[in-house]
């Protein structure tokens, strides 16, 4: 067991025992050694199943919905960004959420790992050692540089230590310098407009409208999504039609502008591998440039729409 897991368990236990919180939301080991699942501990005993390691990719903020009583969330940087965003948007009261920050140097991209190793069923354990991820298999150990097997969004993370937190377990890690230069968008930037249009035509044509992206996203909490409405019918319902898919994904990117924490859950959840983070990161860059706004990076943060106001407007158009 890793050091961090021990600390998380100990702190969770403390929080529940003291009665400070009624629930701790964290991770537990999943069905295989390279997977984790969310874990909800409401008794001190249940904290024994908590883990925290390189496999804990899920954004736990998605499980926080208008809690009536105090909950603690074992929060990575992106989880914390999402928590602050939804608190700002009335989905939880700040006083009801204890952000137990954990540092994060990137979480495992299972798909990428499996593809790379080629022996999925034989994995016995996965652990971090320094800058490497060590995979123990039946046929011995494989060591890979962490950056090669973590989710792409982790390689440009600006919140490896939660910016807003009530406490921190473990030592802070500095943000990636790459975050502000958006290396992930370089390819899209280099394309002509026609190439970009063709690129998205190819990508979005794959969408089967399973809404796994929406389900994984902490910022998607509308009682009814615009895409499901009939009057008006903003987008054609059902998959298979490019236009409806386009409307859905573009509409979603619009709605996430200034609200996305770059956790990558949507892309990770996508069964047909649409690079959804490209749209979200593109919009993050736009809001950062135009409004100096990055979702969930500070406690005092206002909603993006509040920054459109006359009193806040920096540059006057026309």
């Amino acid at each position: 067991m890793s050091d961090l897991t021990d600390k998380v368990r100990a702190r969770a236990k403390e929080l529940l025992e003291s009665g400070e919180v009624k629930l701790v939301i964290g991770h537990a080991r999943g069905t295989t050694p390279y997977r984790s699942r969310p874990h909800f501990a409401s008794t001190p005993e249940q904290t024994a199943d908590l883990i925290h390691d390189v496999t804990c990719a899920t954004n736990l903020a998605v499980y926080v919905s208008k809690p009536k009583e105090k909950v603690a969330v074992i929060a990575k940087g992106c989880d914390a960004r999402s928590l602050i965003t939804i608190i700002n948007e009335g989905q939880a009261e700040r006083g009801n959420v204890v952000i137990v920050g954990v540092p994060c140097e990137g979480k495992l991209d299972e798909g990428g790992l499996l593809e790379r190793l080629g022996f999925p069923r034989q994995v016995k354990a996965v652990r971090e050692e320094g800058e490497e991820v060590v995979v123990e298999g039946t046929e011995g150990e494989v060591r890979v540089a962490r950056d090669e097997v973590v989710m792409p969004n982790c390689t440009y993370c600006r919140a490896r230590t939660p910016a807003v937190r009530d406490e921190l377990i473990g030592d802070p890690v500095p943000a990636r310098e790459e975050a502000d230069s958006y290396p992930d968008l370089a390819e899209l930037d280099a394309m002509t407009e026609a190439e970009r249009a063709a690129f998205w035509h190819e990508q979005l044509s794959k969408c089967i409208r399973c809404y796994a992206c929406r389900n994984a996203c902490p910022s998607c909490f509308c009682p009814e999504c615009f895409v499901d409405e009939y009057h008006p019918q903003w987008a054609l319902h059902g998959g298979g039609q490019f236009r409806g898919n386009w409307m859905w994904n573009i509409g979603r990117a619009q709605h996430l502008a200034g609200r996305c924490s770059a956790c990558g859950s949507c892309q990770r959840g996508c069964p047909v591998d649409i690079p959804l983070m490209l749209l979200n990161r593109w919009m993050e860059r736009a809001t950062n440039e135009a409004f100096d706004h990055l979702a969930g990076m500070s406690e005092e943060q206002k909603q993006l729409a509040a920054l459109f106001r006359k009193a806040e407007a920096k540059v006057e158009h026309g």
Partner: peptide, 12 residues
């Protein structure tokens, strides 16, 4: 019934 209470309207 449709309102999520997100306050985007409120701040606008």
């Amino acid at each position: 019934n449709l309102c999520s209470g997100c306050r985007a309207c409120y701040v606008t």
